[in-house]
Write a protein that binds this DNA or RNA. Structure first.
Lengths: 339, 339
DNA sequence: AATTGTTGCTTCATCGATTGAGCAAGCCCG
DNA sequence: CGGGCTTGCTCAATCGATGAAGCAACAATT
C-alpha cells in the first residue's frame, strides 16, 4: 500500500517553482482569497492554469492543520438496513457538500461503545460538528465532544445536553393508531384494543409513540391492554419471538397492531406467514416508518413516513445558527395514504 | 462554528509539559512504538495516565501529514436506497475498522461528475485506496487516482484499469432464469419466453445477466424475444413506464419476468398493482437482488442475493495484497429458497 | 584506565498550507 | 524632490506529530 515513488504528489511549492513565484502566492490564488492578498489576475490565471495542468490536489491534512476550522462534519448512524436511515444519510451528505462541508459518516450498529469510539475518531479528525443519529446514549457523545469544544446535534433520538431534532412521535403515533383503530372498527363493527410491537421501552421515541397509542385508544373510550405492549427491541427476530410467546400465552391475538419500525415489521410479517395465525382474516397494521415494498404488501397496512427533508433542514438551521436557542425540534411525520 | 477558546485541544506538547518530558517521548508512547524507542515503562505508564486524565485525542491531520500512509480508505457508492448497497457499506466500514483503517464513504447518486468530484475530494484527504462501487465510469476514477499514486478497486461493476470484484452475473442470471422458466412451465404446462426488466444495457452486469437470461431460454429450446428485453435503467419509474409502453404495444405481457434489481422491482410491482394487468393470474418473477420485504410479498417471486460478505473478503484480499495479480474476481450470488 | 555498549531520553527538521508582517517599486501630491 | 499611499508580491513562523540523529549517564569489558 506504499505510495509509488514516481507519482509523488504535487505541492504548492512545486507549482510555485513552475510558475516562478512563491508558495504563498499559489496558496492565496488556489484558496480564492488572492483578491484580498492583492495578487494580480495575470499571476492568478497563470497559477490556476499550471495547477490544472499538473493535476494538483490540495493536501487537506496540511490545510486543516493550519486553519482553525476543518469544515469536516461527522454523522453517527445506527444502521443502513432501512430506508429511513438511508435517506437521512443520503440527504445529509448532499446538504453538507452544498455548504462546502466534508461529511464523514460512521455506522455504529446500535452499539454504545462503538458510538463513543466513532465519536473519538471523529474528534481526532478535527470535525467541527457531530450529528448523533438514533444514538443509544446521545449525552455521552455530547459530553465527549463538548470536552474538545465540538458541538453536537441529536437527530431521531433526543438527548438533554444538546439540541435535538426528532419526529413528532406522539402526534404521528396518535394519528397512525386512530387510523388502525378505525380500520378495525370498519371490519369488525366494534372498537377493539390494538397490540404495540417493537422498539425499546426506554427510548424517548418509543415511549412517546406508546403515549400516542394510548391516547388514541382513550379517545374512543377503550383502554389499551398493558400486556399487549411489546417493546421488545428493533430486531426482526425479537418481534417474531415476542409474538410467538404472546400467542402461546393468550391464544388469539388482537385484530390490529401498531408496529414501531419497518425493521420490526419484517419480523411481524414473517411470524404471521409462518404461524398462520391470521390465516382467516388479515390483521390491520400500522407501521411507524415507511418502505416502498411494504406499501406494496397489501392494503391492510398504514404507514407514517418520517419527514427526512424537514428534519435535515432543521439540523442545518441549527448548524448555520439560524435557530439560536431551541433545544428540541419536533417534525410531524407524513401520513402515507394508501394508493 | 468557531471553536470555544477555553476548550483548547490538548496536544502532545501539553502532555509533555505535564509529564515533565519531551513531546517526542509522548508521541512515541502514544503511538505504541516506545519499546523500539527505548522509553522506560515507568515513563510510558505515566504518560498514558496523564493522556487519559486529560482526555487527549491525537490530531490525525498532523499525524497523517507527517506519515507517508494515511490509513484512510475511501468508498464511492451510488445509493443508500436498497439493501445491497446498504450491506456493502455497513460491512466495508466494519472490515476497514478491524484493520485499523478509517473509512470515508461518499454517495454519488449515479452521477458521473459527482463520482469524479468525490474521488478528487478523497485524494485531497490523502486516502491510501479507493473502492469504486457500482461506478458509472470506473476507469475515469482509476485514472484520476493513479495520477496521484492511489490504488483503486472496482466493486459491483467492473472496470478495465483496476482489479474488479463483481457478482457472477451470468451464472446467477442463468440459475434465476431457469427457476422462473420452470415455475412458468409448472403453471402453464408449457415453456414460454420471459421478459427482462431494468438495468442499463450498456453496463457489464446487465449485459451478462441478459446473456444468462438468453442461455437459460436456449437450454430448454426456446428463443427469447428481443423486444421483451427492457434495459430501461434502474429507477422504479423507468420500469413502470417501460411496462406501460410495452403493454400498450403488445396487449398481453409474458407470464414470467426477470427483474434486474429490487429498485426496478418496485416499479414493476407498482405497475402490476395499478394496471391490473395480471389480475387473473399473478406473474412469475425472478429478481436479481434481495430484499426481505420482497421475500414476504408472495411465493411467486424468486430472488438471488449477491454475496456481499464474500465480495468484500475479495476486496480486502486485494487490499492486503493476498491476491496479487487477479484482474477480475467473480462471486457467485446466493439463490434464495422460498420459505 | 580506556574503550565499547546500553539505556533513556531530548533536539530539531520535516510534512504542506496558511497568513501576518514586511519590502520594493511605482504613483501621486504638494 | 521628499513623504505618503498603493500595488504586488515574498519571507518566515506556525499548526501538531513524527523519527533520525545525537547526547549524557552509567555498566560492562579488556
Amino acid at each position: 500500500m506504499k505510495r509509488v515513488s514516481q507519482a509523488k504528489r504535487k505541492t504548492i511549492y512545486d507549482l510555485a517553482a513552475l510558475a516562478g513565484t512563491s508558495a504563498s502566492a499559489v496558496s492565496a490564488v488556489l484558496n480564492g482569497n488572492w483578491k484580498k492578498r492583492r495578487i494580480s489576475s495575470q499571476l492568478a490565471e497563470k497559477i490556476i492554469r499550471i495547477a490544472d495542468e499538473q493535476g494538483y490536489a490540495l493536501n487537506m491534512q496540511a490545510s486543516v492543520l493550519r486553519r482553525d476550522r476543518s469544515n469536516i462534519i461527522g454523522m453517527i448512524v445506527p444502521k443502513y438496513d432501512n430506508r429511513y436511515f438511508g435517506s437521512i444519510v443520503e440527504r445529509f451528505e448532499a446538504m453538507a457538500r452544498e455548504r462546502g462541508l466534508f461529511p464523514i459518516i460512521t455506522c455504529t450498529r446500535r452499539d454504545p461503545d462503538l458510538e463513543i469510539e466513532a465519536a473519538r475518531a471523529m474528534l481526532s479528525y478535527q470535525v467541527d460538528c457531530v450529528i448523533a443519529t438514533g444514538a443509544t446514549d446521545p449525552d455521552r457523545i455530547t459530553d465527549l465532544c463538548a470536552a474538545a469544544g465540538v458541538r453536537t446535534i441529536n437527530l431521531d433520538l433526543p438527548g438533554s445536553h444538546a439540541p435535538s431534532v426528532i419526529s413528532d412521535n406522539f402526534q404521528g403515533a396518535l394519528e397512525l393508531t386512530r387510523r388502525v383503530l378505525a380500520n378495525c372498527e370498519r371490519e369488525l363493527g366494534q372498537n377493539v384494543p390494538l397490540m404495540f410491537v417493537g422498539g425499546r421501552g426506554t427510548d424517548h421515541n418509543t415511549s412517546e409513540r406508546v403515549r400516542g397509542f394510548r391516547t388514541a385508544h382513550h379517545e374512543i373510550g377503550i383502554t389499551p391492554e398493558e400486556d399487549l405492549i411489546l417493546a421488545c427491541g428493533y430486531a426482526p427476530e425479537k418481534a417474531e419471538q415476542s409474538l410467538k410467546v404472546l400467542a402461546e400465552k393468550r391464544g388469539a391475538l388482537p385484530h390490529g397492531m401498531f408496529v414501531n419500525s419497518t425493521i420490526s415489521l419484517e419480523g411481524v410479517i414473517r411470524w404471521i406467514r409462518r404461524s398462520g395465525h391470521y390465516s382467516e382474516r388479515k390483521p390491520q397494521i400500522g407501521c411507524f416508518d415507511f418502505d416502498p415494498f411494504v406499501a406494496l404488501l397489501g392494503e391492510n397496512i398504514e404507514m407514517v413516513r418520517q419527514d427526512v427533508p424537514k428534519m435535515l433542514d432543521a439540523v442545518f438551521d441549527i448548524i448555520d445558527n439560524r435557530n439560536p436557542e431551541q433545544k428540541l425540534v419536533e417534525i410531524m411525520p407524513i401520513v402515507e395514504t394508501m394508493a
